[in-house]
Computed example of a mutant assay.
Amino acid sequence: MKSSAITCNNGSFFNVFDEGMSLVCDEDLQALAIAVIQTEMKAVAKLADRIDRQFVQACHLLLDCKGRVVVTGMGKSGHIAGKIAATLASTGTPAFFVHPGEASHGDLGMITRQDVVLALSNSGETEEILTILPIIKRLGVPLIAMTGNAESALAKLASVHIDVAVEQEACPLGLAPTSSTTAALVMGDALAVSLLQSKGFTRDDFALSHPGGSLGKRLLLQVSDIMHRDAEVPMVDDSVLVSKALLEMTGKKMGMTAVVDEGRRVMGIFTDGDLRRMLEKNLDVHATRVATVMTRPCTVIASDILAAEAMQIMEAKKINALLVVDENRHLLGALNMHDLLRAGIV
C-alpha cells in the first residue's frame, strides 16, 4: 500500500493511502476519540433505567447461591465475563470463568447443581452458549443472561434476563464491540458491588483476597509485624545523661531513643530534634540528664493497630518515629518512617 504525506492547515500531518483515501488530521483523531467516549458515556448512562426487578432477582439468585458463580461468554463478551468473574471473586462472591467452547468439550463438568451461571452475549444467540444450555437446564442451575436482545434465545431461556442493549457501538463501522462491552462491564460491576454491600463485605474481607501488593499491606499489615523488638529498640533509663542517650541512638540507628523508668514504662522520647534544641541552649550533653530535655508526653501506639494507621499518625503529628506500648505504657517496640517504607506502606 502506497501513501503520501499531506500537511493540514495547522501544520500537522496526515497520510493519504491509495486504498480508501483515509484523510486523518490531528484534530480528526481528537474528535474521533471524544466521539467514542461520548457514545459510551450515553450507553452507560442509560443502564440506570435497566436496574429493575430483573436486576434485583439476579442479585437474589447470586446471594442465595450455595456454590459458585460460573461466568461465561464468547469473544469480546468472554473477556468481559472473565473480568466480571474476577471482580465477583475479589468482593466476596466466589466465581470463575468458563469458556463456552471448552465447556462443551469437558469443562462443563466444572458446573455443579449448587452453582449459578451468568452468561454474557450481546446478540443472545451465541452458538457456543446455546449449545450448553440444555445441560445447564438439566442440572437445574439458575441461569442469569446478560444480553442486548431481550427477544433472543438466551434471554428467553434464562431464569433472569438483564438488558444491556446499546443504541450504537462507538466503532464508526458499527461492528467492533465497544459500547456493548462497556455496558456489560458496568452492569457486572453493579452486580458485584450490590452483592458486596448486601453481604456486609468489609475492608478486612477485601484484604484477605488481596494479600499481595501495596493494597494488601495497607489493609493487613499491623505495627507488630514491622516494629523493632527487644535489643533492637533504643531505650535508656530516665536518670542517664544525654551523652549516654546519644550513644544508644547512634547504636540503634533510629534517630531517637525511648526514655523509660525502672519498670520499663515510657516516660518520654529523646529525638534528633530534642538534641538540636538542647544545643541551641548551649546545654552540656555530659552534664544534662535526658529526662530534662526529652519530649514528654510523647505519642505512643498499640502493637495491634494497622501499620497504615501508624503512618497517618506520623504524618498528622509530623514525627518520624513511634514507640509501641501495652495498655500500661510498658515499652514493647518502636518503628519509624523507614520501616514503613521498607514494608511498602508509604
Score class of each variant (00 low, 15 high):
residue 2 K to C: 01
residue 5 A to N: 10
residue 12 S to R: 13
residue 18 D to F: 07
residue 24 V to I: 15
residue 24 V to W: 12
residue 37 I to Y: 14
residue 53 R to W: 04
residue 61 L to E: 03
residue 62 L to Y: 01
residue 63 L to R: 04
residue 64 D to C: 02
residue 69 V to F: 00
residue 72 T to W: 01
residue 78 G to P: 07
residue 80 I to K: 04
residue 84 I to L: 12
residue 91 T to D: 03
residue 93 T to D: 01
residue 99 H to W: 02
residue 99 H to T: 02
residue 103 A to R: 00
residue 108 L to F: 14
residue 115 D to Q: 00
residue 117 V to D: 01
residue 125 E to Q: 11
residue 126 T to F: 04
residue 135 I to T: 13
residue 142 P to Y: 04
residue 147 T to R: 05
residue 150 A to K: 15
residue 151 E to I: 12
residue 152 S to Y: 10
residue 152 S to E: 12
residue 152 S to W: 05
residue 162 I to Q: 06
residue 168 Q to G: 06
residue 177 P to N: 11
residue 178 T to E: 10
residue 181 T to S: 12
residue 197 Q to Y: 00
residue 198 S to E: 08
residue 206 F to M: 02
residue 211 P to E: 03
residue 213 G to P: 05
residue 216 G to H: 06
residue 216 G to K: 03
residue 217 K to H: 07
residue 227 M to L: 13
residue 232 E to G: 07
residue 234 P to Q: 05
residue 236 V to E: 08
residue 249 M to I: 14
residue 253 K to M: 13
residue 255 G to F: 01
residue 258 A to G: 14
residue 264 R to H: 15
residue 272 D to H: 06
residue 277 R to N: 12
residue 277 R to I: 09
residue 283 L to W: 12
residue 286 H to P: 01
residue 286 H to N: 15
residue 287 A to Y: 10
residue 309 E to Y: 09
residue 312 Q to H: 13
residue 316 A to P: 08
residue 317 K to W: 13
residue 318 K to R: 15
residue 322 L to K: 08
residue 328 N to T: 14
residue 329 R to H: 14
residue 329 R to Q: 14
residue 329 R to C: 08
residue 332 L to G: 01
residue 334 A to W: 01
residue 334 A to I: 05
